[in-house]
């Protein structure tokens, strides 16, 4: 009795929180996206699709394309870095593993904004890396590190890497190594073992990690602003400008709804692939 009341309370309060701070504001966003802009009252209560018409402009599509490329690049780099790392992490003795996992998580105790500023201190023309290289005589002129595409990717991958490592670690950890021994006994090459056994079995981790990196990367605009010099506009910048600079709430809302739809699409793909991993194929045997 007491337990069920506690259960109802905890579920109820969480739901209430989500309804007040997520659902209701989002309903407003959807509503505003169908209204008309008004210079005096912000929005006029007249239905229109003009907000959506405006985001079909070539400029917004360029903004989206660039944001998607950036998020995709970040996901691919994170995966390439995190997969081998997670793989070797699993094979380490327990004591080392715990320390390394802890080291992975500790940076989270600091705000990502501060960690981005720390990267600026590393990369700037008179920063730590350039000062060191100049001092050793490897270079004569400071390298151009800050405000480059590379700096943006380093910043994004650095911030989001743990989101890739942790799901990969979990799914590699669950891997049944006897399957690999069996495959080897039956004469499979290393390449075969990786692509036919390890990769399919760890696919849920890859999909989960990629989703957890890709979606935040799509929305993070302060890292490209700080490390890339704000020379390109991302979806996040675009939405912010619509609300704050021009006071064009319908277009800003329409762009937000569009972004949410993209994210839903990716979550749906994630949902489909994770269901497939649970219902069929090798997943059950592991």
């Amino acid at each position: 009795m007491v337990r069920s009341r506690f259960r109802n309370f905890s579920i109820g309060s969480t739901m209430l929180w989500i309804i007040i701070f997520v659902v209701v504001p989002y309903i407003f966003v959807v509503l505003f996206s169908f209204l008309e802009r008004d210079p005096v009252t912000t929005v006029a209560w007249r239905f229109t699709l003009a907000g959506y018409g405006e985001i079909l402009s070539p400029v917004f599509l360029k903004v989206c394309w660039y944001s998607l490329l950036l998020a995709l690049g970040t996901t691919v780099i994170s995966l390439l870095v995190a997969y081998p790392f997670a793989f070797f992490l699993v094979r380490l003795p327990e004591a080392y593993r715990r320390i390394l996992l802890l080291l992975m998580i500790i940076p989270f105790w600091t705000s990502s904004l501060i960690r981005t500023y720390a990267l600026v201190i590393l990369f700037k023309a008179n920063g730590i890396i350039n000062t060191f290289l100049l001092w050793t005589g490897v270079i004569d002129e400071p390298l151009n590190l800050l405000y480059t595409q590379t700096a943006v990717f380093v910043g994004l991958v650095y911030t989001l890497l743990p989101f890739m490592v942790l799901p990969l670690y979990t799914s590699i950890h669950k891997l049944d190594w006897r399957l690999i021994d069996a495959a080897r006994d039956l004469g499979a090459t290393s390449r075969h073992i990786f692509f036919r056994i390890i990769l399919p079995l760890t696919m849920p981790g890859i999909v989960a990690g990629s989703t957890m990196v890709f979606l935040p990367a799509l929305g993070l605009f302060y890292i490209p602003d700080f490390l890339g010099g704000a020379r390109s506009m991302l979806i996040g910048n675009f939405i912010k400008n619509q609300f704050l600079t021009t006071g064009n709430w319908p277009v800003g809302s329409a762009a937000s709804v569009f972004l949410t739809l993209i994210m839903c699409l990716f979550l749906y793909v994630y949902f489909l692939s994770s269901r497939k991993a649970h219902t069929g194929g090798m997943g059950d045997m592991a």
């Binding site: 210079p39 400029v59 660039y66 506009m233 910048n237 675009f238 021009t246 006071g247």
Partner: peptide, 17 residues
């Protein structure tokens, strides 16, 4: 600049993309 801010913002977006 009143409603001209929309024109400014349009060109700003073009400049940034």
């Amino acid at each position: 600049v009143g409603e001209a801010i929309m024109t400014y913002e349009k060109y700003w977006e073009m400049l940034k993309t």
